[in-house]
């Protein structure tokens, strides 16, 4: 069969890309528009904002400080003077929970953000390149997974004492960030890499490639948005893990020093006296659970909002 040449009209270079990807501004605007329509996600967002305000400004409205002790008022249950009760040294639990929120939220955010950006980036590239590069990058992940975390932590502890002798805990939180940053992105990298391995063989990715879209664009515009579900689930998981890892790290001597205490620390300290004074566990644990619920529902809302297939 013969086709006259005139039937073929070459496409303008530009038209190819713009047709595949809509301008990125509309993508985010679109996502925000859809997020606003999700009541559960919006309530969660408001809760998180209130929580941050509570953590930052709450302690100024209390007549107690996180370190004030009163041996005559030890282990009191919630009452009108101490809304959350008092701990075993007679300190006001409400102020301690508010102060703890600062540490725990900071740790949670940092963990989620490094997980999100670095883990996705690393895993995405590894999965997309495949072959030898993938083998190398994933062995690095395996190596970091295998070296005992506790050794890292003790190394850091010693290093920070050398670098900042006798700090009042100022460097403490940074050492936690560093310890978490070392390992927290590893599960994310593996999950993203696994997703990219399968997504890159799917029709839409092959199609994008056939029409000559640049590789980074295929990866970041097409493949990663399609893996957003598992990515958000993994990132939100890293928040509670970070909060409790921080408690463990503070317990063995890295991080903020006593009498400052994070939520994780408050709840693990409360475990030994659980039978006698359950309220000491109740409030920090409740704070963690509620925060997590909020982050998760917000995460789910974000996932739906960012899902490229749900766009109308």
């Amino acid at each position: 069969m013969q086709y006259p040449k005139e039937l073929f009209i070459p496409l303008a270079e530009k038209a190819v890309h713009t047709d595949i990807v809509r301008p990125s501004i509309t993508y985010w605007q679109d996502a925000w528009r859809r997020l606003k329509k999700n009541p559960v996600a919006m309530v969660s967002m408001v809760f998180i904002i209130l929580l941050i305000i509570f953590a930052l400004f709450g302690p100024y409205f209390s007549s107690y400080s996180y370190s004030d002790q009163d041996f005559d008022r030890r282990n009191q249950g919630p009452n009108s003077e101490h809304l959350f009760g008092t701990d075993s040294l007679g300190r006001d639990q409400l102020v301690r929970v508010m102060h703890g929120a600062r540490i725990s939220l900071a740790v949670g955010f940092v963990a989620a953000i490094t997980t999100f950006f670095f883990g996705v980036f690393y895993g995405g590239i590894s999965g997309y390149l495949g072959g030898r590069a993938d083998n190398l990058m994933m062995r690095i992940v395996d190596i970091l997974y295998s070296i005992p975390f506790l050794l890292w932590v003790i190394m850091l502890m010693v290093l920070f004492r050398e670098l900042f002798p006798a700090t009042g805990g100022g460097a403490g939180l940074y050492s936690i960030f560093l310890a978490l940053g070392l390992v927290f992105w590893l599960p994310m990298a593996r999950i993203v890499r696994g997703q990219i391995l399968t997504l890159k063989e799917q029709e839409f990715a092959l199609a994008a490639q056939t029409i000559g879209a640049p590789r980074w664009k295929i990866l970041f515009r097409h493949l990663i948005p399609n893996a957003m579900g598992p990515i958000i689930v993994t990132a939100t998981l890293s928040i509670p893990e970070a909060i409790f890892t921080e408690a463990f790290l503070s317990f063995i001597g890295l991080g903020v020093s006593a009498p400052r205490a994070s939520w994780g620390m408050l709840s693990s300290d409360a475990l030994t006296s659980l039978r006698s004074f359950p309220h000491l566990l109740l409030f920090p644990a409740l704070a963690i659970c509620l925060t997590l619920l909020a982050f998760n529902f917000l995460g789910d809302g974000l996932r739906d909002a960012l899902d490229p297939r749900m766009r109308k």
Partner: peptide
């Protein structure tokens, strides 16, 4: 299911274990 699974990821094993035992 999502409510319970959120509780599940926000309650670490040391609290869950202690509560189960209790």
């Amino acid at each position: 299911t999502m409510f319970f699974s959120t509780i599940g990821i926000s309650v670490p094993s040391f609290i869950l274990g202690t509560l189960l035992m209790y």
